[in-house]
């Protein structure tokens, strides 16, 4: 009887703790700086060209908003290269609400790739980012 009672209490406590951790994780997904965002990757018109379209919106006018990095993998998950965002390559914009554009990257023609794209927004001392995984695209 004691063993059964202990097993039941333990199971219940375990389930309850897991629910709390899920709830805690869920509540932290709201962002103080990011409003909404999208990233997609398509094959370009040139040989080996991958075109990353991104649209990142901050809640209000941000000191800095856009794409902080594009990490490229082949379809097998092997790391290829990293592109860091900057105002010079257009992946990052300053003193605005929206950073929206298309970034072109040249890869090996015929190979398939996907990318882990990190978007972010900084408003004053508040900074937040999200990682988006694109679909697998074959470079033309």
């Amino acid at each position: 009887m004691r063993k059964r009672l202990f097993a039941f209490i333990f199971s219940f406590a375990l389930a309850a703790s897991l629910c709390f951790s899920i709830s805690f994780a869920s509540e932290n997904r709201a962002s103080k700086t990011l409003s909404f965002y999208s990233v997609s990757c398509r094959a370009g018109s040139k040989s080996g060209e991958l075109r990353f379209s991104y649209d990142v919106r901050a809640n209000t006018t941000a000191d800095s908003v856009g794409v902080s990095s594009i990490v490229l993998y082949n379809s097998a998950g092997v790391y290829m290269t990293t592109v860091l965002g900057s105002t010079s390559n257009g992946l990052i914009d300053s003193n605005c609400v929206t950073c929206k554009d298309t970034y072109s990257h040249t890869a090996v023609s015929g190979n398939s790739y996907y990318a882990a794209v990190t978007v972010f927004a900084q408003i004053g001392d508040e900074y937040d980012s999200r990682k988006i995984i694109t679909d697998v695209v074959t470079a033309p």
Binding site: A30, Y37, S38, S40, S53, T60, V97
Partner: peptide, 26 residues
């Protein structure tokens, strides 16, 4: 110091409309 924005987007075709993610609280 409050700010808000209005944005209207027109996509080239329905096929390329990306999956957008909106941050929200509970």
């Amino acid at each position: 110091g409050s700010t808000f924005s209005i944005g209207i987007t027109r996509y080239a075709s329905p096929d390329i409309i990306p999956d957008r993610t909106f941050e929200k609280d509970s």
